[in-house]
């Protein structure tokens, strides 16, 4: 299997803090992987590197055959827009836009006309069960609804990989599991790869595989003997 996403010896520092020190991993196409670890372990930074948001100080990031760490900002931006989808802990929706506009604006950045984008956005809100929230702004939505809209935004352009950074962190257990189930269900239906960052073991159990990050590096996968 050629991995879809690969990190090799990735290091990142913020000032004096070394967030990642030689992290390596490989994720196959269609896999649903949880990156877990205690807070401050560097898992979010690793996600940002894999998603082409951050360029590592050292090491390689590959998406297929493409070296993300060697691309310029414009190409990485295009890749993020066209091939990746991203969900954050707090939705990251634009507060002034309505739910449907939040999804549509992303599609418009991808080159779709406004009417088509709005129609596609509404369709995706429907699939995630929040089409009745379409004309509302994020401030008028519940946390679970905000996350569903954010997921519609991440999925609407048919990404190959969805990155989710603690997507249920701001939600209660039941709402969180519901929203996550929707995301992973949709991803499985479309064969989308999902990289899920979480510190919650029960959320990690939703993935097919767990990658543990500890002190800025990926812990070796143990061989389980039962």
């Amino acid at each position: 299997m050629t991995p879809l996403l690969q990190a090799r010896d990735v290091s990142v520092s913020f000032g004096r803090t070394r967030a990642l020190r030689g992290a390596s991993l490989a994720i196959g196409a269609g896999e649903i992987v949880a990156i877990s670890g205690p807070s401050g372990s560097g898992k979010s930074t690793l996600l940002h590197c894999l998603a082409g948001i951050l360029v590592p100080d050292d090491g390689e990031i590959r998406y297929g055959e493409t070296r993300l760490d060697e691309l310029d900002e414009d190409s990485r931006t295009r890749l993020r827009r066209e091939v990746f989808g991203i969900v954050f802990q707090f939705g990251g929706l634009v507060p002034e836009l309505t739910a449907v506009e939040n999804v549509a604006v992303s599609l418009m950045f991808g080159g779709l006309g406004r009417a088509e984008a709005a129609a596609a956005a509404l369709d995706w809100l429907g699939r995630l069960g929040v089409d009745d929230c379409a004309p509302l702004r994020p401030g008028d939505l519940s946390g679970g609804q905000v996350q569903r809209v954010a997921m519609a935004r991440a999925l609407a352009h048919g990404p190959k990989v969805v990155f989710a950074d603690e997507p249920t962190g701001a939600l209660d257990s039941v709402a969180g599991e519901e929203v996550l189930g929707l995301l992973l269900g949709t991803a499985r239906d479309h064969g989308t790869t999902v990289v899920l960052v979480t510190h919650d073991n029960r959320i990690a159990a939703y993935a097919d595989r767990e990658i543990v990050v500890r002190d800025g590096a990926v812990a070796a996968s143990p061989v389980v003997t039962r």
């Binding site: 940002h48 414009d74 295009r78 993020r80 827009r81 989808g85 991203i86 634009v94 992303s106 950045f109």
Partner: peptide, 12 residues
């Protein structure tokens, strides 16, 4: 935060 999220999602 919403600006950063937009940029992360691929808005140039």
């Amino acid at each position: 935060r919403s600006m950063a999220a937009l940029a992360a999602a691929g808005a140039p």
